[in-house]
Write a protein that binds this DNA or RNA. Structure first.
Lengths: 241, 241
DNA sequence: TATAATGAATGTGTCGACACTTTTTGGTTG
DNA sequence: CAACCAAAAAGTGTCGACACATTCATTATA
């Protein structure tokens, strides 16, 4: 499963090594469970119960929860406990707005700083994705996570660590969560791939401005698609209600 | 001290209420100490010692440290302890690059979403700052924190909570830290104020594109000033060494 | 005298326990 | 039967303790 792309991109679960501190592993596990919906969005968390589930002490778990809270994946109200965020449409759009300009910046910097080898690797990834789309097998993986692999490589190429921190450590999560929840199989994956190729073209030609512009537009397209889907769902609800 | 601007802007130390959970208060205290340099950058932290200093248990303090780590204000290496970040020049520039596009986005959204009352408040703040600059008293405060009050109000006006989260919860800190450390009394505070006024002009006229552009340029100016200062310091060091 | 081995001291990782607060339950009363 | 109050159950906030890892000081050795 996951084909050759497996382990290519350490974006998620950075510290799941079995020798890493327990708290870190719990943090990763929890984050994954929240994003994938194993722990339902909006549900309340019982610290003793969760601690028993993962087989760790409450203090250890609370440390992980503190970090999750800092990442806005859970919300804690004093004396009332912790509950998983319930992603709102507005928040999702806000996230896309930010991702748009940051993605643009990342792409621009990537055009400036990426090595030729890295660019080749990026292109290779896209061919992987193409194959994945043709076969039904990898399709679901590509649409759920594959796109992040691409964006991750670009971000790495930007040489701006803070940028990667922000996007990988807090911003992507919401979007991934959304994808898992509404299982949004982007209607035209091949179209997205074409856009990816164009972005790599621009990076390859060291055309910073174009790379910036194309990435912005690419993400804006995704946002608009979400907005459309939302309008449709709302209209449908209004009809049924 | 701090004149009338006191308590005007709750950007920092949000949860220092005396009834807030102990962990949160420790978190705020620690963050402030780190930013202001009371706990020197790069210094190693002894958990038992710090816990005794603040009069809390180690578990409580560790929770705060976990959040500080998520915010990249401290770095933890397993079994080797926690040490305060030592801000590097590169990281600072990276931060400015991001702040540039995010500030632009915030300003653009502020032009779209701010109410007339909010805009009036923004203008009032600038007049406060003008007065502060004329009197020597408030000068140091303005140059250290006043500018953040301005940017904070704009961000609030953008109606994009995530944007505020990112900038206030992680990005501004580095820059504030830098200001305290090199006590960079921006050479031309009145010039910065003029730029602020122009930005408010654009917001007032609901000129999104101009607001975006001016804010970007304003932050870019700050970045370039930092870069220049850095070049000068380096040149001086090279001469003396 | 420099270096390597060894034991003490300090520090981190993790856990279990207790006090106080909120929620739930179940009985009581109008 | 509904509304209300009280006791119990569950949960959160905070603390202290112990095992293991790391660092430091000391001593023994080449």
């Amino acid at each position: 499963m996951k084909k050759g792309v497996d382990n290519m991109c350490p974006v998620f679960n950075e510290s799941s090594q079995s020798n890493a501190p327990l708290t870190d592993r719990i943090f990763d596990l929890l984050q994954d469970s929240i994003i994938k919906g194993d722990i339902p969005a909006g549900s309340k968390i019982s610290e003793p119960e969760l601690a028993k589930t993962y087989g760790v002490s409450r203090g250890t778990l609370r440390e992980a929860l503190s970090r999750l809270e800092e990442r806005h994946l859970v919300v804690r109200s004093p004396n009332h406990g912790v509950r998983v965020v319930s992603l709102s449409y507005e928040e999702l759009i806000e996230t896309y707005q930010i991702r748009e300009v940051l993605g643009g910046l990342g792409s621009r910097l990537a055009a400036r700083n990426m090595t030729d080898e890295e660019i080749a690797g990026l292109r290779a990834l896209l061919y992987e994705h193409e194959k994945s789309i043709e076969e039904d097998q990898g399709l679901s993986y590509y649409q759920k996570e594959g796109e992040f692999d691409f964006h991750y490589l670009v971000l790495r190429g930007s040489r701006n660590k803070k940028l990667l921190d922000i996007l990988d450590g807090g911003l992507y999560q919401l979007i991934r969560m959304y994808r898992y929840q509404v299982s949004t199989t982007s209607s035209r994956p091949s179209h997205a791939l074409k856009e990816h190729h164009r972005i790599v073209d621009a990076i390859e030609e060291r055309d910073e401005e174009l790379a910036d512009y194309l990435m912005c537009r690419h993400i804006r397209t995704a946002r608009i698609s979400v907005e459309e889907r939302h309008r449709n769902m709302k209209a449908e609800n209004d009809n049924n209600g």
